[in-house]
Design a protein around this nucleic acid. Structure first.
Lengths: 160, 160
DNA sequence: GGTGAAACACGCCGATG
DNA sequence: CATCGGCGTGTTTCACC
């Protein structure tokens, strides 16, 4: 699934936006050797192509009474395509689950969960996760401390 | 570490900004029963208090030649405070590592890694991760498919 | 790539409870 | 006295040339 062709300027724009998503076109024009109007047009193209998915706000969970981050490995009972879709839909409806990936190995899925405190985690795993009909087993681990958390991708600009 | 007191309007603003970080103050004023200028002032306060950490752009990794997401559990040789700080600093310098948490249990740290392809993953783990002096062992797993990925926190608005 | 008009953010004001 | 809405100014964006 390759998108449109990006040149070095597109990559420079993306790098700059990853650093500061609120930079104005004029500010970006100071870093990228293009005019502000060209930068605006390129950003629009990047948005339309889906490369730029959206603009998000980063909140500090600990200041909002969300002090527990946990991980869970989940194994399913069955592995048919319908089961997988059903599980995916159920996970999408759980706001406490911020990330979920299908993985190879011991478990089938891996989740990152954010909740208020340990009792909330317990309630969430017991009442919401394990009660999903397809779930066979859940193994959860509490995060002790966040070391790093970024949304910045390691972009590989073209050599040219 | 509790921050400033937030009322229901602050929560409504945060909810709305989590949905659309580029919403203008006027647009927000249509959802939250406050004037645009008040909303602007509250957002400023939320930024100053650190609750709003920043504004980010969400890029689609698969369209940018970053098709592999992997997870790694890392165990360290020693666990003194200096070792931990050294490891944290080293991880922060690795752009391929997007998330890292200290965890309780079998491993010491858990990482999420994004790279171009499987050979890149192999190179990264072998040459960059395992060569960190403090690392004793690394166990990595490749993500087969992303099911969910959001930055939206499950906010708990006050009852009042 | 540049230029205009419209929309926007932000600081200042008096009013309100 | 903290918080509010309205207004004016400088800035940004976007359609058009």
């Amino acid at each position: 699934m390759r998108g449109i062709e990006l040149d070095r300027y597109d990559y420079q724009i993306l790098e700059a936006l990853q650093r500061d998503a609120r930079a104005t076109h004029q500010k970006l024009a100071q870093e990228v050797p293009l005019s502000a109007s060209q930068i605006g047009r390129r950003i629009q193209r990047l948005e339309e192509s889906g490369i730029i998915q959206g603009y998000h706000i980063a909140l500090r969970p600990d200041l909002l009474d969300l002090s527990v981050t946990a991980f869970a490995s989940v194994s399913l009972e069955r592995h048919g395509e319908a089961s997988i879709r059903e599980f995916a839909a159920a996970i999408s409806d759980l706001p406490e689950v911020l990330e979920c990936y299908a993985v190879a190995g011991e478990a089938d899925y891996w989740l990152r969960i954010v909740v208020q405190d340990l009792p909330s985690l317990s309630r969430f795993v017991m009442n919401k996760l394990m009660t999903l009909s397809l779930v066979r087993s859940v193994k959860s681990t509490v995060a002790l401390e966040p070391i790093k958390h970024t949304t910045r991708l390691p972009l590989q600009p073209p050599a040219r």
